[in-house]
């Protein structure tokens, strides 16, 4: 680890001001950042610890949803009774991620901003456009079993590792930020992440010093919520693919549906195509499969991860069947 300056934030304004330097970083739970610093993948010269800031509350919002402070831990969020009753898909997603110890430490804002788990991003002896812009992408011709199949570019096929964010995408969550100049803005979660294009090292639309203060969940959508994660081992593993669904069934038809995938793209992948295919569709495995095909029409595999395309379709099918009570 390289030497760095450590600052405990005194106020929102001072934290953001300190973090505007290009080599500064906010730190909250540190569950991802510290690992990356030990490997010298992240080499900040200045850490601004937002631990002292009052961002650890979950509050009712005026519109009937919840406002989740950026420092709320994954454990606290998953266990919150309002979340469990009104947003069960979020609780399920969080509990499907990491381990109890990590969830106790990891925060809501930090989870959204975690970096990819691509093996080549982690191995500093290998080319990686995300870690070292312009060096190339070793995953393209390499062991890309865990990499993305949709929305990515020939410069980077890294997948986003969050489970929580997948549920939030299905719930139309919004991210509230504050910048060094005090200006606040609200960003739909789907717009938080930048497509890799030819600048995969720039992962979000956040400006230097811009801090996630909270995540707002709109009032819970009607319908059955479900998170389904498929991974190589039963616990403590990143998703091969995962699906968050919110689906309303009326007789033998789907009246409304929301679908988001994890493990297949650079961001939680909300699929308008799957949702459109599901509206009015019969509640059958065949139509769930058709929705999956629509969702993955533009997907392509890179060799070792080809299987993610059929697996994502089948996992969506399983989730929708469970959520709608199809035997």
């Amino acid at each position: 680890m390289k030497p760095f300056r450590y600052e405990r934030a005194g106020s929102l304004a001072s934290a953001c001001a300190s973090a505007t330097e290009p080599t500064a970083k906010f730190i909250a739970g540190g569950t991802n950042l510290l690992d990356l610093m030990k490997l010298q993948i992240e080499t900040p010269t200045h850490l601004v610890d937002i631990g002292p800031l009052p961002l650890a509350e979950i509050e009712e919002s005026a519109e009937g949803g919840l406002r989740i402070g950026a420092r709320v831990t994954n454990s606290a969020l998953a266990a919150d009774m309002r979340v469990r009753r009104r947003y069960p898909v979020l609780s399920q997603a969080i509990l499907a991620g990491a381990s109890a110890q990590l969830r106790n430490k990891a925060t809501t804002g930090g989870n959204l901003l975690q970096r990819t788990r691509c093996s080549y991003f982690y191995d500093t002896t290998k080319p990686c456009n995300k870690r070292m812009p312009g060096s190339g992408c070793a995953a393209l011709g390499g062991l890309n079993r865990m990499n993305a199949v949709i929305g990515v570019s020939s410069d980077c096929i890294a997948a986003h590792g969050s489970d929580m964010a997948v549920a939030m995408a299905a719930l139309d969550a919004r991210v509230e930020t504050v910048a060094a100049d005090g200006v606040t803005r609200t960003i739909p979660i789907d717009a938080l992440y930048r497509p890799p294009g030819n600048t995969p090292h720039i992962e979000t639309v956040l400006a230097p010093g811009e801090l996630i203060q909270s995540v707002v969940l709109p009032p819970p959508p009607p319908g059955q919520q479900l998170y389904r994660k498929v991974r190589d081992r039963a616990s403590f593993a990143f998703a091969l693919v995962s699906v968050a669904v919110v689906v309303t069934r009326e007789d033998d038809r789907v009246r409304a549906a929301r679908v988001a995938f994890g493990g297949i793209s650079y961001k939680p992948w909300r699929s308008a195509e799957a949702e459109a295919a599901l509206i009015g569709a019969t509640v059958t495995r065949a139509s769930f499969d058709a929705a999956g095909r629509a969702a993955l029409r533009d997907a392509r595999g890179y060799g070792y991860n080809d299987f993610k395309i059929p697996l994502a379709r089948r996992t969506l099918r399983a989730a929708l069947a469970d959520a709608t009570g199809v035997i």
Partner: peptide, 9 residues
Amino acid sequence: ASYHVAVNA
């Protein structure tokens, strides 16, 4: 995280 050994689950 990438070399998986069996866990309790």
